[in-house]
Design a binder for these strands. Structure first.
Lengths: 214, 214
DNA sequence: AGAATTATTTACTGATTGGTATGAAAAAGG
DNA sequence: CCTTTTTCATACCAATCAGTAAATAATTCT
């Protein structure tokens, strides 16, 4: 029968919003990278205590992977989807690049791509995390090249084009855009770079694939 | 009776090979990044004990900056110099890109560019280190754009070209190459991407600068 | 209502971080 | 030779790292 509970109640117990907490975690990882984010950074941003974090997400690495998945769903999938919906390979790639340029420079969110930036280098013991992101990037490159190959089947890209080279080129540029964004480039800056990259389309697809010499 | 000596001289002669130790430190930072490298990693690689490191280099950040300078001298300056020596802007940029492609994939050395990769994201307290590298990257971009503008003066690039856009494009691609290299791309892979980027040269320089609408 | 269960918080773990104090060894100077 | 100065290595520092144990508060189920 203690009716007089202390007015200063330190922790009010309530179920926290797991999805919201994950979003907050994503933003911190996106901003600081995997190794640059401490558990204290996470709990503070997520508004929960440490044991709640571990109960809900397992460990730091598992939380990061969930955050990456969420990032991919929110920022990556929409930009990737246009690879399927656009009528030509050229439109698909240009639209994808411009979509990414927009997501890389959203106000109030960290610049650049989380999957590109958040675990590039680090200690040997976090190699799994880096490999995980590298696998994501690899899938993106494969999808890009596949879209060009698809254009060759559909006829909007010459049969003689080198899908591997063209895809590698645009994938490289796309990943470079993340660094530009981190270095302060605005959306318009990125758009100008994409203008340049798209000016390359015609000579790129016109260039015949050079057969391996053997 | 104490002899008058220069005030707290920092660079006293050491028994170990300072230049060699610095090279070793550079390689570790290059491989693992600034925050991914611990003092223990450094002392082990450098073959010296911790107090010797501090006596010779000051602190971790100062050592990193010296390592960056050394990296730039060994790997960066030679590739940059061609911007001055090549007869045309196009040759300058193509040669530079291919030189970098070679340095990014040297056997026995970490792939990619230390200045691009080794401190992109991290904790707020290391912001100075990231800014230091960002300044290096900015200078590279400026030099690239200046070389194109120089070509416009010399006549090998049309007066109507947009040096800002073209330079931004090639700088972005160059930084993307570092990530490709980290993801396992070979020198030939990078060369193929550069082939694509150079195929873009003609339409790029032919594209008139779009005046700002105001 | 009261017991059982679930959440959540405080406070802690051992390991590791960047950075030093201290004392031994070696060299230099007389 | 002995003393003074310089260089190195052991051992330590407080702070922070990721991860937990134990205890307390709130909710659920009778």
């Amino acid at each position: 029968m203690k009716k007089d509970r202390p007015p200063v109640e330190r922790g009010r117990p309530r179920n926290f919003d797991r999805a919201l907490a994950l979003r907050r975690a994503m933003e911190v990882f996106w901003e600081r990278g995997y190794e640059g984010t401490s558990l204290s950074d996470l709990t503070e941003a997520m508004g929960i205590e440490r044991p709640s974090l571990y109960a809900a997400f397992g460990c730091k690495e598992a939380l990061f992977r969930e955050a990456v998945d969420l990032y991919n769903e929110i920022e990556g999938v929409p930009a990737q989807r246009v690879l399927e919906t656009a009528p030509t390979a050229r439109q698909a790639i240009e639209t994808m690049l411009r979509d990414y340029a927009a997501t890389y420079t959203q106000a109030g969110k960290p610049p650049g791509c989380m999957i590109v930036l958040s675990a590039l280098l680090g200690t040997p013991q976090n190699k799994d995390v880096r490999d995980h992101l590298a696998r994501h990037r690899r899938e993106s490159r494969v999808a890009l090249k596949a879209r060009i190959a698809h254009g060759m089947v559909e006829g909007d890209v010459p049969q003689t084009a080198d899908a591997e080279r063209i895809g590698g080129f645009y994938a490289t540029l796309l990943e470079g855009l993340s660094i530009q964004a981190r270095d302060g480039a605005s959306r318009l800056d990125l758009e100008a770079i994409i203008d340049g990259a798209m000016a390359a389309w015609e000579p790129l697809v016109a260039c015949r694939k050079t057969l391996p010499e053997r």
